[in-house]
């Protein structure tokens, strides 16, 4: 039980922190952390295949997309 609570707290804090960042690269990384947290929850909820997909797509591919978009645009929000 305690590990579930921990994972949920990490996921939610990561997703809230995502929205508070000024640095967009940190946004990419934190969204990856939150997606991996959800993947762990999927594993706990008896869905290992979904967890794998979520870990790859949400934890690796999406942050890379966002990072590429940042590279082509701007890194800091306020500029």
């Amino acid at each position: 039980m305690i590990e579930v609570i921990l994972v949920i707290i990490v996921t939610l804090i990561a997703s809230i922190l995502t929205l508070l960042q000024e640095d967009l690269l940190k946004v990419a990384i934190l969204s990856g952390i939150s997606a991996v947290g959800i993947a762990v929850l999927f594993q706990i909820l008896l869905a290992p295949d979904v967890a794998l997909t979520q870990a790859i797509v949400g934890g690796a591919i999406t942050p890379v997309f966002i990072a590429l978009a940042i590279k082509k645009t701007q890194r800091m929000e306020g500029e």
Partner: peptide, 30 residues
Amino acid sequence: IKKVVGLSFIEEGVNLFIICLTYKEGGIVP
């Protein structure tokens, strides 16, 4: 970019919701 990342949380929340519905207490992986 932040807005879009935030919107993707809706999608992830819905996915998590769906997986919650399949869970069985003390069950096994299908």
